[in-house]
Amino acid sequence: MNIFRLCGDMTHLLSVVVLLLKIHTIKSCAGISLKTQELYALVFATRYLDIFTHHVSLYNTVMKIIFLGTSFTIVWYMRHHKVVRQTYDKEQDTFKHYMLIIPCFALALLIKTKFTPLEVLWTFSIYLEAVAIFPQLVLLQRTKNIDNLTGNYVFLLGAYRGLYLLNWIVRYFTEKGYRQWITWISGIVQTALYADFFYYYIKCWRNNEKLHLPS
């Protein structure tokens, strides 16, 4: 495991910590898209089906359990917690799950490495992760006052994807015969979705302004 992969995973973990901090400590999920969080829960549920059958390392297994547990915890908080659920911007978070889930599943049936249930679901999770941030980005654009924790959460998620790109470059040059086209192309698409957000995040940060996205 190279440094970029480790930093990518840690950034991903940190993004979850930031989100849980907002939800658990401040008891608010304002500006957070439940649609995106539900899609992430589905991503992890379909990707980590191999958790007990396919052992890579203790590190991988522990991280899988953390991402599964936290993603479902976040969804539970936003849907059912007495205080937190009242801060959810339901009227603004209008993106339809099926508009992302159905095309991703169709694509997973068409383009995959092996036609087995586990492999198709794994591929589906890769495609779905690439676009799962979409409802969140739409919600950010509709939010007038984006708070720091929400802005930092999305920034950390984007940074995690960027670091994974660097990890793949390192692996390509250091591991013989290493290639994973499905993951690479999805990862590039996923990172590209953050480009616009990054531009405004850095611009506002440099000008010492509060983060706002043009609508």
């Binding site: 992969r5 995973d9 396919h54 890579v56 991988n60 899988k64 290493y178 086209w181 499905i182």
Partner: peptide, 10 residues
């Protein structure tokens, strides 16, 4: 295209 690695990333 054939991917060559087992799924060892998160």
């Amino acid at each position: 295209t054939q991917d060559t690695k087992e799924h060892d990333e998160l």
